[in-house]
Design a protein around this nucleic acid. Structure first.
Lengths: 289, 289
DNA sequence: GAACTTCTTGACTCATTAGTCATTTTACCT
DNA sequence: AGGTAAAATGACTAATGAGTCAAGAAGTTC
């Protein structure tokens, strides 16, 4: 019984529905079925609770897309669409969290949350940038901010649509739709018909480079580990396909809201049979388990 | 000495900067330089205050674009762009209000505010729809929701960019940019390359007014009457400012859920004093009462 | 300038809620 | 069963802030 997780889930549910200020610690405690004092033994303050919520859910939603991004087998266009798809699947799975996130109302300007938000936006943009360059090469550069900005706004608003209504928008179709629209806009820019409006200087607040480390260290280590294993797998001569499948299966399992630990261990065992993958596999296993 | 207006402005400033829940009535009173008791003689509650803010600023920002929309002299494409431009100009002028609006955090689910928000969204969409049909004719219909949705999201996110940064985005360029992007996407739909994702059924929550019997028709007549009065007022040589203020006050009152009929009649009487406004004022009065 | 009206004030009430801590309950060990 | 450590409880404190109202200030009229 992971009470901490139960609290996070109850809190997300309530805050997503009623907002941060209109959800009291008492209500959260009641909803989990524990006392307020007990709640405070897990989280020293309400602000800490909301920060923990973000820390808990952020990668759950975003890590998925990143992993797909590392899969070198898919052609760029399909990979990009697949990443959106996986993102939308995550959003559907964690609807309440996304609702809470999109409300955006939190404790009055917490340093920590603000820098976290900044980092997330930066991550989103650098992910988009990487995909744009994969798709169109370096000459998309002068138009990248306009494209990224429009993409981000379309993506965000479809996210809102998904979580608010009972619309049966399919993540797959939606992913393809968005990439298709980006493609049209990008080609128009590349053909020289449209002038860009945004530039590096204007978008400085959104380009987050190597600023402070901190809360996301572990997330980044995990990214590194994923990158390493995919790189190793791709250099294999024999059994490449097989090991890629195993790795993808691990990725899939790890994306579930409740990954089966035994399944994971077993899959890692399969990877570790191959001497060339052993180290990388162990490193990733340590990060995930 | 319009104290009411001063309160609205101070409140918008504070709420835009710190959010609704983190702005106390005391702070608002202090900022205007009056006492809390005095504040409560203008607005019976905090919720009433925020509702009045919306009532006051809504048309100040949006009315402009509607008036341009009724101008038949400009070709559709330019007219559409011009409408965006005017909208963005309004946004720049009322930055604090837009900040407040985009925060979106208000009293916990006020009936009144919710229906107001719904009406505004509906208005935005029907305005977009009219422009799309003017531009592309009826055969844009199957794709209208996708186009409107993307347009709205791009529009909103550029609005956010405008009010948050010191970016010197020019309203004119921005208007042209947005219409240009819509055009590209629309042409792609029309050429049959992309499939639409959204349909009437899905978007029912956003289509307002059209289904309720003649509501839309009378709405248009009313728009005509508004357009006429504003045009007349703007051609005045003397007392233009005064009559503009009266007209704005009528507009404000008419948007309340329970407009005070006597106040309205009195205001119209003021307008009718001016011979040049008499006919237009009477026409509008008939529409509203 | 007195009598009267209207406007303005800020100290007060009352409800809410974050956070604390002495006390009780449960879990575990021998 | 008895003893001890750990966990859970909820009554309590303190702060905040919406909304009230009696008393005082300012304005108006004759």
């Amino acid at each position: 019984m992971d009470k901490r997780k139960a609290i996070l889930e109850a809190a997300v549910e309530l805050i997503g529905a009623k907002g941060y200020t209109h959800t009291s610690m008492q209500q959260i405690a009641d909803s989990v079925g524990i006392s307020k004092g007990s709640l405070y033994s897990f989280f020293p303050s309400k602000e800490d609770l909301i920060i923990s919520i973000y820390e808990h859910y952020q990668q759950l939603v975003f890590e998925r897309a990143f992993v797909i991004g590392l899969d070198g087998d898919l052609p760029p266009y399909e990979r990009f669409a697949k990443q959106f798809q996986v993102q939308f699947e995550g959003i559907l799975e964690y609807k309440s969290y996304m609702k809470m996130h999109m409300r955006g109302e939190t404790a009055q300007s917490s340093e920590k949350l603000e820098s976290m938000g900044h980092r997330m936006r930066g991550r989103l943009f650098s992910w988009l940038e990487r995909n744009l360059i994969d798709l169109y090469g370096e000459n998309i550069s002068p138009y990248k901010w306009d494209l990224m900005w429009m993409t981000q706004s379309i993506y965000t608003s479809y996210t809102g649509l998904m979580i608010s209504s009972e619309s049966n928008l399919s993540p797959k179709e939606l992913g393809q739709h968005i990439v298709r629209q980006i493609d049209i806009l990008a080609n128009d820019f590349l053909s020289g018909n449209s002038r860009p409006l945004l530039d590096d200087d204007m978008m400085r607040p959104f380009s987050v480079g190597m600023d402070r480390e901190g809360a996301f260290m572990s997330f980044e280590k995990r990214e590194e580990a994923w990158k390493a294993i995919y790189e190793r797998v791709n250099t294999l001569e024999e059994e490449k396909q097989y090991n890629l499948e195993v790795t993808n299966r691990i990725s899939e399992e790890s994306r579930k809201s409740n990954p089966d630990e035994l399944v994971m261990r077993g899959l890692f065992q399969l990877l570790k049979e191959n001497q060339k993958l052993k180290t990388a596999a162990e490193a990733l296993e340590e990060q995930l388990l």
